[in-house]
Design a protein around this nucleic acid. Structure first.
Length: 303
DNA sequence: CACCAGGGTACCT
DNA sequence: AGGTACCATGGT
């Protein structure tokens, strides 16, 4: 089918007519680590393509350094065709905690990231603060990523491929300050490079099989698997539970009592429903951006 | 300077 | 199945 926005032959910019899309909330919500913001403009790469994004009247304005005849790669990444209202309508109607998070984070979206970069980034994420994950990813790009065309003054590098990382040594990776995660990343890169783990095939699987396949990787547990399932493959019920989400769930829905992981998973499945992954992202971003607000302080200080 | 960070594994009971 | 030490590094 032909969409009017895709008919242009070659152009370096376009506008996606989409409403309720907050670039700041989306790129700052801990789902992606390689993008930089300056004066309201977000810059980053999708695979080997560099792009800059800003909010314009009527939607998202995108610019690329060289003509892009077909913007499907960016539509896919940004998920501009997703109807956010339909997602929000699937949330439990009587959940006031979730409702408040949605109101506070209006326009927060889930991206659809390239799978290898997403997997690698979250292998690096364990017990790291988001700022540190960003730093490690930046170092990896600068040292081992392919240079890509950009519009700025400084050079830009793509996230290094699995093949590239597979050819590195553990000490070279440790030099990027990733610590004990280095052997995990190296082994994952090798298995992806050899095809032992087929990232493309995982996208065609059902949720259970895809999760099982990701869990075969050393250094990938349930939380990281769920991040990749949600942020790279778009499984709508994947629900990553990190320390923040665990904290917010136990505080809001279990009166601060200790809950076993199995019981928590059962609650999540029953309560949040078909768009649980989106609900998770709203709760996560909300709790992390509400520093000094009354009741939230209790959540932050509780274990 | 303790404590914590978008965890996972090995090893224990 | 559920607890715990440990892993490496830097922010707060």
């Amino acid at each position: 089918m032909l969409l009017t926005t895709d008919i242009q032959i070659t152009t370096t910019e376009t506008v996606f007519p989409v409403q309720d899309y907050d670039l700041d909330a989306t790129f700052l919500s801990g789902q992606v680590f390689g993008w930089e913001q300056e004066a309201g403009i977000w810059r980053g790469t999708v695979d080997a393509r560099w792009v800059e994004l800003s909010i314009a009247s009527g939607g998202i304005h995108a610019r690329t350094p060289s003509p892009t005849g077909d913007w499907r790669w960016l539509r896919e990444f940004l998920q501009v065709d997703l109807e956010l209202a339909a997602v929000l309508a699937a949330f439990p109607a009587q959940d006031q905690h979730l409702r408040r998070a949605v109101t506070a984070c209006r326009g927060l979206r889930l991206l659809r990231q390239p799978s290898w970069e997403c997997l690698a980034s979250f292998i690096l994420s364990s017990t790291k603060q988001i700022v540190q994950i960003r730093q490690i990813v930046r170092t990896l790009r600068e040292r081992y990523g392919e240079r890509v065309a950009s519009l700025g003054d400084r050079p830009v590098f793509a996230f290094p491929t699995a093949q590239r990382i597979a050819g590195l040594t553990e000490s070279e990776l440790r030099a990027c300050k990733m610590g004990f995660r280095a052997p995990y990343l190296l082994r994952a890169a090798r298995r992806v490079a050899t095809g032992d783990i087929d990232l493309k095939a995982i996208g065609q699987m059902d949720l259970i099989s895809a999760r099982q396949e990701l869990l075969r990787l050393d250094g990938v547990g349930e939380k990281i698997a769920d991040c990749v399932l949600l942020f790279a493959y778009g499984f709508p019920t994947a629900f990553p539970v990190d320390v923040w989400v665990r904290r917010v769930l136990t505080q809001y829905y279990f009166r601060g009592r200790q809950v076993t992981p199995a019981r928590l998973a059962a609650f999540v499945c029953k309560h949040f429903g078909s768009q649980a992954g989106y609900a998770q992202q709203y709760l996560f971003h909300h709790i992390r951006t509400q520093r000094t607000k009354d009741s939230v302080g209790e959540v932050q200080s509780s274990k």
